[in-house]
């Protein structure tokens, strides 16, 4: 199944390079969102806690603008049926998940780099904790966004439904990730952040398991 999912990821990757379905909207959203925050802040000095919170606000809304494409583009173009005839539901989900994980990591790395360059209070004092929370948070975001994208792809008002449905599901992840980012900014040790890390790990495992269990039903009818 691994190589089939990887082939599906490659298909999506090449398709994305040709159609620019998600990349353009993600890139534009990152630039616009950070610019608006910069204009709103002006000459004010932003506190560390606010920077950490705003960092995840940008990540959340950027994810909402681009991650649904994995399934929405298949439904809109009518190619979902082709995929159903080509592979098992678990293969489709794995392929789309790989694509979204890579997209989330690229997108959030750019956001983190821009934040570090543009906000002087965004100074990471515990780099290992930041990387750990960044990786776990991104995985959770990619998993949840992928399964929610599969659900909303068959609905009418996709654009509105995606953030509405995502918000309650992503809330525990976002809140914990904001807390972990703040810990990384103020230099808290990994040992002291172990409960928050455990929450994010549990969230990722639960969402991954539930997604694989549910995907068959979502994908078929």
């Amino acid at each position: 199944m691994k190589s089939k999912s990887y082939s599906l990821f490659l298909k999506d990757y090449h398709s994305e390079l040709r159609t620019r379905y998600a990349i353009n909207s993600l890139a534009m959203f990152i630039i616009v969102a950070i610019s608006i925050i910069m204009f709103a802040v002006g000459q004010e000095k932003v506190s560390e806690s606010l920077t950490g919170g705003l960092f995840w606000v940008v990540i959340f809304f950027t994810a909402m603008s681009g991650l649904s494409r994995a399934f929405v583009s298949e439904e809109e173009r009518g190619t979902a049926l082709t995929l159903q005839l080509l592979s098992a539901p678990s293969t489709v989900f794995s392929g789309k998940l790989i694509f979204n994980i890579i997209l989330v990591f690229c997108m959030n790395t750019i956001i983190a780099l821009l934040y570090s360059a543009l906000f002087e209070t965004f100074i990471i004092r515990n780099f290992s904790l930041f990387i750990l929370s960044f990786v776990l948070g991104n995985l959770g975001l990619a998993i949840s966004s992928t399964i929610i994208a599969a659900i909303i792809a068959k609905a009418g008002a996709k654009g509105t439904l995606y953030p509405v449905l995502s918000f309650p599901i992503l809330l525990p992840l976002i809140l914990t990730s904001v807390q972990l980012t703040l810990f990384a900014l103020d230099g808290t040790s990994i040992e002291q952040a172990k409960y928050e890390l455990a929450i994010v790990v549990s969230y990722d495992v639960i969402m991954l398991t539930v997604s694989y269990l549910l995907f068959d039903f979502i994908w078929k009818d």
Binding site: K11, G78, L81, T82, L85
Partner: peptide, 14 residues
């Protein structure tokens, strides 16, 4: 299974 139908769409960018 091999399936052909009018509502089957292949990838037009390839």
């Amino acid at each position: 299974i091999g399936f052909v139908s009018p509502y089957l769409v292949l990838y037009e960018e390839f």
